[in-house]
């Protein structure tokens, strides 16, 4: 537990000290959404929903990609001496979940400001956005680990990630469509349970499989 906290703290310190990466992603979020505003002035509800999640995917690829790609070989040798693979992946997952939840919230705020509020219950949608951000970052963090091991860039991560994210994305779209409608539809709890179950599955897979990617 101590190891994990130390590793998360190290990632936070890095983000604060190398400000270009954090602000880079933030700027990416802001400029994407502004370009979107220029391109389509006032989207319908369904388009709003679809665009929001598509943008989340692209933000996630950009935000999460560097989590492993930035760790140089020399730094990995240092990690080998101070922590195990499980600690390392759990720390990365927690950090990326927090990062992505922040980015999802920022982009949701911008969406509200620029595209208006087509939603009856914004706080429920915010909750969905947080779960969604966490789901996306789980999958992409693990794929970033694979891409980094293969000494490839974010492009390979996107190729692997876009098909693999579909199950969660499909569930998220359906859950958030419910948030858009006035009447409470049945089956919401089943969908959320399914999504959480899916996330637990991916968490388990990541923790089991990461040790094989740890050392050459």
């Amino acid at each position: 537990m101590k190891h994990i906290l130390t590793l998360i703290r190290k990632d936070f310190l890095l983000e604060i000290r190398q400000q270009y990466s954090l602000y880079g992603v933030l700027l990416y979020v802001v400029s994407t959404i502004f370009v979107l505003k220029m391109a389509i002035d006032q989207p319908e509800e369904k388009v709003w929903n679809g665009l929001y999640w598509m943008i989340q995917i692209f933000i996630c690829v950009n935000a999460v990609a560097k989590s492993f790609l930035q760790e140089s070989n020399g730094r990995m040798y240092y990690f080998y001496t101070i922590a195990g693979p499980r600690h390392f992946i759990i720390a990365k997952l927690i950090f990326n979940i927090l990062l992505m939840m922040t980015m999802s919230s920022v982009s949701l705020l911008l969406f509200f400001v620029l595209f208006g509020l087509p939603i009856e219950s914004p706080f429920i949608f915010w909750g969905i956005a947080l779960i969604g951000g966490a789901s996306l970052s789980l999958v992409f963090t693990f794929l970033a680990a694979i891409a980094a091991r293969a000494q490839q860039n974010a492009a390979l991560m996107a190729i692997m990630g876009f098909p693999l994210i579909i199950p969660q994305l499909q569930l998220l779209m359906r859950i958030s469509n419910i948030a858009f409608s006035d009447i409470i539809q049945s089956g919401l709890s089943t969908l959320i349970a399914l999504l959480i179950g899916f996330n637990l599955l991916i968490l388990a897979l990541a923790v089991i499989l990461f040790p094989f990617l740890w050392k050459d």
Partner: peptide, 23 residues
């Protein structure tokens, strides 16, 4: 595509196996 991106045989075997299980 992942397989063709890695040239080292042992490394390719391990990385693609990890992806295979995950996928």
């Amino acid at each position: 595509i992942l397989r063709s991106a890695v040239t080292d045989i042992d490394k390719r075997a391990r990385i693609s196996a990890v992806y295979n299980v995950f996928a």
